[in-house]
Every structure is written in C-alpha cells, then in structure tokens.
Design a protein around this nucleic acid. Structure first.
Length: 639
RNA sequence: GCCGAAGUGGCGGAAUGGUAGACGCGCUGGAUUCAAAAUCCAGUGUAGGCAACUACGUGUGGGUUCGAGUCCCACCUUCGGUACCA
C-alpha cells in the first residue's frame, strides 16, 4: 500500500496484513537500512538519525533478534499522509522493522500490535483505539475479532468485513494491491566445498549466468587430489582449471549444492534407478507412490523435510509425481543426550564461571582427581588461569587423594560441551548389535534421553545368553536338538512373537527388547535348545540384532540370509491359559490374589472371591453393596 | 512470546480405565575364586514391624468412575524447536 509523503516528496510503500487498522496508524516505521531514510530525514533530525544508525551498526544480527523486550528508534522529521483523511503521520525508523521482510516499512498501529504499542509508549506517540473487542471477552490483540470504531467509513463493521471493504477502497483508489507473501526460510543453497552436486551453470565473458544445455548433462565433478579451499576464498573446484575454464572463455560455477539437493528427491530415483531417459517412469512412480515412514531428528523436520516437501510439491504441480506429499508419516526420534561435567569456579572479586570438563576424565562419583586436573591445565588453555587451591572446591579422600567435585548436567552431545561419547568405541567394545539394541532399549524412540554407558552391559549379557541357547558356555558344543517343543516352550516363544509384532507396529522398540530378554531368560530356565523354537526366535530377533541373527541362522543349517526368511507369526492356540490369577480388591484396593480356572462364570467367580479368608477379614462389620466381576481380569468388592 | 514434548523407585524406563514400578542398570546378601573380573542364586518404592501385615505412593489441586499413572478441568515445573514476519 502506498502513502503520499508530505509536501509531494514522493511515496512510501508499506506491507500490512491488517489494512482495516489504517485509522489507528499513528506513526510509520522504516527499517534503518531503508533507502528512503536518507532522502526524507530533515536537517533538524539529521543528528538523531545519524546517532541511531551508528547504534544499529554496533548491533549484530543476533542482538537484533534476541532482544525483543526493549524497542528503540529515531524520528526522521518527515510525515506521510493518510490517504483517506489526509492526517499527518510521523515517520520513524526502528530496528525491529526488517529490511528484507515485506517492503521494509510498516504502518504502526499501537492499539492493535504489541510491539507498536511498546514503541508508542516509549516515544510518547498517540494511541487510537480502532477495534471494540468488548463483546469478545478473551480475544487477544492479534485476533481478528471485534467492531471497528474511530475508523470513518469502516465504523460498525466486523473486522473481517472491514478488511474486505478497505481492500476494495484501496484498489479502487489505485493506492495499493492485494498480495500473498511467501517466505522460504534459510535458503542458503550453495556450498564452498567439493562434496556435493556441481551446479550446471556457466558464466559468459560478461559474468552473466547461463544454464548448461541439456545435452551436456549430467555434469560430473572433476577428479581432484586436493580438497582444500582454493586461493582467494574460492571453493576447491576452482583448482581444476581445465574443468572450470571452457575453450570459448566462459567459466563454470565452482560452488556445489548442499546435502538437501540430492536428498530431497533421491527416493524417487530409487523407484527406477536404471532408467536413463527420465528420473523415474510414471509406471514406477505410480507403483511405489511415496515413502511410508520418514524417521529423522528435529533438525530434519525443519530443514531437510521443508526442502524435500517443497521439491515434491513442485514436481506434483508439474504433473511428474502422483502424490502431493512425499512422506506418509513422520517420526521424530529423540536426541541421545550427553551427561556433561561442569566445574564451578569462583575467581578473585567474586566473579564466577562454569567450565565443561571432558567427561572422559571424570570418575564414577562425578569428580576429577587433582592429578588429572593439573594435566588438563597443560593441554587446555581454558583452565590455565585457575588456581585449584583457591578457585575451586577440593575434597580429600580417606586415602589422601584430592578431587574436585563437579556437577552433572544432561544436555546435547557436543564437542564444545566435552561430553561426546564416540559410537565407534562402543561398537568396538560391545559390537554393533549390542550398541543398536541398547539405543532402542533406552526408551521411547521419540523421546530424548541421556546416554549411560553403564546400562549397556544388560543388553550385552542378553546377547550372550541367547548365544548360549545354541552353544554350551564352556565347551562351545552345539546344543541344538530336533526334539518336539513342549507346550510351555511354545507359550514362551509365541508370547514373545505376539508382543514384538504389536510393539513394532507402534514403534515401541524398547519394549521389544525387553520381550526378547524375558523370552531368552525363560527358555534358559526351561533348558530349551530346540530347533523348532530357536529357528523362529532367530528370525524374530533379526531386525534388532542382524549380525548375531545371521550368524545363528547359518549355524542352524540355513544357506540363505535370514532377511529372506518369513517373519514369524504367533499362534493364539499356544497362548491359551488354564488358570487366571484374579486380583481381588475391596473398594478398588487390591487385597488378595486367587488362581481360578479360565472360563469360570461370573457368579462362580463372585462366590470364590467372597469365600477367601482375606476377603472375610475385610468384610467384618461391613455390608457388601456390589461386586464387580470382569471375567479374565479382576474382581472388585464394594462395601 | 509462539509451537511441540515430558513429569512414575537411586537411574533409564513399563503399564488396551482393572495386580503401579515389567525389563535393564545400580545397590545389598550369598555361591564360586588364593584374590579379582566374569558368572550364578536371592532380595531391593517409602515408613513401621522378627514376621504375618499395615499405612502411604505416578508434579500440584479438583472432578468423573465400583476402580484413574491412564479420562476431564485448572495450575506448576522441565526440556526441545522457533522467534521483533507487520
């Protein structure tokens, strides 16, 4: 929307989503970097504006974004005119108005915008109420609800109607137009490194960019020996001069694309990887459709997923893919956090600071020995200035060794926090299967949880116990027999199959691991090494411990990979119970437990419960009001 | 500020409205060992009691229900993401 400047000095273009509030616009705001600032500033205000711009210059992008409570600004001395009533509106500049959003200029409506309100209060600018929200209790300042007041021809209208009415006026008067504003976050696309797809872009002798003709695609990276940046801050590709400089004097782009580029659509290519005429045939695309499940961390949800969906939408609009969205379901896995060790230091003058000590130097009681600390001071200059005798607390053990106690904090694993556990070391020590299963075992997949190396021994001994169903612990003799499994053994196996099947469906992998542990413990106590049971167990465990399962599968005499064997299905017949343990409650509080044959009728169950000694004891002097019996579940006596 | 997730033992966590704490770690006691590691057995929510047992117990306060960690209402706290977006 355009506002005339006072004295015919030109026009100011602003962007607003609330043109209905125009009669409440008591001042205008420009971004400090706005082109008009220099032109319109009056001599009286030149010093104030110069001072303010100097201040803005000292502020980093981060400062400007993080400090949101305190507003700042300066008056240019110039005025714009309200196109409907000719009112004079002072023009200010303020750092909270961003140069790159909209037109870098806004009409400020303090009555209907919190930041504008703070600005008006700070600089004592008028506030004109323009929306009566009294009939909408609880409506916030941003809600588009209420009746227009103090607004000339809009008075009495509901906000939504007023927006439409004022838009029609504005367009009829030719002082503005409707526009949908799109914004794509963080579109930093090119990278100065070798690893990445090269851009098929060439520059002519005037430096104008041209797309490489299709006949020259695909463009492939040249072979390099040295991947360090080239001179002049150029990307490594600039070293390949034969590749960069074309015979006609044109030059290739030397930046490359980021990981987002290929990963935004590679799954489509997977659908028809050998196709050399198109990225994938319509037949393949219609068959595979989309990706069932996308598992990724939060940075993927905001970064990669956004690009990938954007890509896919483009391909869909072009009619090249059959689905609007590339992924059916998103699962955000939680972060495995680190436990960091924080040393609290008090320097002379009472100034205190916190320093992260490498967790590898910390003992079980979360302390660092003085000896190790002195060693640390030699290699890490963050600790140079610290005097252990006065700046930190030191405790002395009974045996005379000195330690500095540290506090523990669970936070993101990060080099800067010195709390990183290297997965390679875990795999080296426990094996990939154990590491994988322990990560699953830690807790629900969507939740963040701290890594604790201590707990991994539980999974490690589970894998050993499973192995020992096949092999004798001491002699290494193969224990597998072809005997018929008993009812009890089949029940153990099928209980596990059922649980694992159900838990996989709801992504509850931690409880799958627990089900395997129960199964193996019970098979061990039954001394079961029967092929009929173990064969199914191996197939069941294969997705969780693939290396171990593959090994055991071959030991069972199979020639092909376990991945090709059908996944076991449970048989309800093996799970039938002869007796059911019924909890017996008085007023909802459990008082006894009774084993009763399955299939007992409700009156029989009630009678059996009322005959229990425990129940009789609790019923002394009481009247039974009601007995709730849920067959197969529980019995509750209400008194 | 906005969006999202989560509050249960010493710790990670389990629990279609129906036995709270499965499974694992840790801890305690025992077996084995010259000793240790490893392994095996038993115990382990808190308080009282030799025990049987009793009371209390899933962030706080209410509610629904025969019965609530689970459902409803209000609140508190923590974590993650994002942020002057007009």
């Amino acid at each position: 929307m355009f506002f005339d400047l006072e004295n015919g000095a030109g026009q100011l273009e602003i962007f607003t989503t609330r043109p209905d509030t125009i009669f409440g616009a008591t001042f205008m705001l420009l971004a400090p970097e706005h082109d008009l600032v220099k032109q319109i500033t009056t001599p009286d205000q030149a010093q104030a504006i110069a001072d303010y711009l100097a201040y803005v210059n000292t502020r980093s992008e981060r400062d400007r974004m993080s400090e949101t409570k305190e507003v700042s600004g300066a008056f240019t001395g110039a005025y714009a005119l309200n196109p409907f009533n000719g009112a004079k509106i002072p023009i200010w500049i303020a750092e909270y108005v961003l140069k790159d959003y909209g037109t870098g200029a806004i009409m400020a409506v303090p009555a209907d915008d919190e930041r504008d309100m703070r600005f008006a209060k700070k600089f004592d600018l008028p506030i004109v109420e323009i929306i009566d929200k009294s009939m909408y209790p609880g409506a916030t300042i941003e809600d588009k609800q209420g009746k227009m007041i103090n607004s000339d021809f809009l008075n009495g209208m509901e906000v939504m109607d007023a927006i439409e009415a004022v838009l029609q006026h504005i367009e009829a008067m030719g002082i503005g137009h409707r526009k949908i504003n799109f914004k794509l976050r963080d579109a930093i696309y090119s990278r100065q490194r070798y690893w990445g797809e090269p851009f098929p872009i060439i520059y002519d002798t005037d430096g104008i960019a041209h797309a490489l003709p299709e006949s020259e695609l695909p463009l492939e990276l040249p072979v390099l020996d040295d991947f360090k940046p080239a001179s002049g801050g150029k990307a490594p590709l600039a070293r390949a001069e034969d590749w960069v400089n074309l015979p006609n004097g044109w030059r290739r782009e030397t930046d490359t694309m980021p990981g987002f580029a290929g990963s935004s659509w590679y799954f489509l290519r997977y659908m028809d990887a050998d196709n050399d005429t198109e990225f994938a045939s319509q037949k393949a695309l219609n068959y595979w459709q989309d990706v069932d499940l996308y598992v990724g961390g939060t940075e993927h949800a905001v970064g990669h997923l956004m690009y990938s969906r954007f890509w896919h939408k483009f391909l869909y609009d072009k009619g090249l893919v059959p689905t609007k969205e590339p992924y059916k379901k998103l699962l955000n896995q939680g972060m495995i956090q680190g436990k960091s060790a924080v040393m609290e230091v008090t320097l002379e003058g009472g100034r205190s600071l916190e320093l992260h000590v490498p967790v590898s130097l910390v003992d079980d009681e979360w302390r660092i020995s003085l000896e190790k600390f002195l060693g640390l001071q030699l290699t890490d200059n963050r600790f140079e200035q610290i005097d252990p005798s006065s700046h930190v607390t030191v405790v002395t053990d009974a045996d005379g060794t000195k330690h500095i106690p540290l506090s523990q904090r669970v936070e993101k694993m990060s080099k800067s926090l010195h709390n990183v556990i290297n997965p390679d070391e875990m795999v080296e020590r426990y094996g990939a299967d154990c590491f994988r299963m322990y990560e699953m075992f830690l807790g629900p997949i969507e939740q963040a949880k701290p890594w604790d190396t201590k707990g991994i021994s539980g999974v490690s001994s589970f894998l050993r116990k499973m192995w020992m169903l096949f092999y004798d612990e001491y002699s290494g003799k193969n224990l597998v027999t072809d005997a018929e499994p008993t009812k009890a053994e089949l029940k153990v196996l099928h209980t596990c199959i059922k649980k694992v099947q159900e838990d996989i469906e709801r992504f509850s992998f931690n409880t799958c691991v627990s089900a395997f542990m129960i199964c193996v413990n019970e098979l061990r106590s039954l001394n079961c090494s029967k092929r009929a049971v173990l064969d199914e167990l191996v197939r069941l465990v294969a997705p969780f411990a693939p290396f171990t399962a593959e090994e055991l599968w071959h030991q069972l005499g199979h020639e092909t990979t376990v991945c090709e064997a059908p996944y076991p299905a449970f048989n309800e017949a093996y799970l039938v119970q002869d007796t059911i343990a019924y909890p017996v409650s008085i007023n909802g509080k459990k008082r006894d437990l009774i084993d009763l044959p399955a299939g007992m009728s409700v009156p029989e169950l009630e009678k059996a419960a009322l005959e229990l000694d425990t129940v009789k004891k609790w019923l002394e002097g009481q009247t039974v009001k009601k007995v709730v019996v849920v067959p197969g579940r529980m019995i509750n006596i209400v008194v």
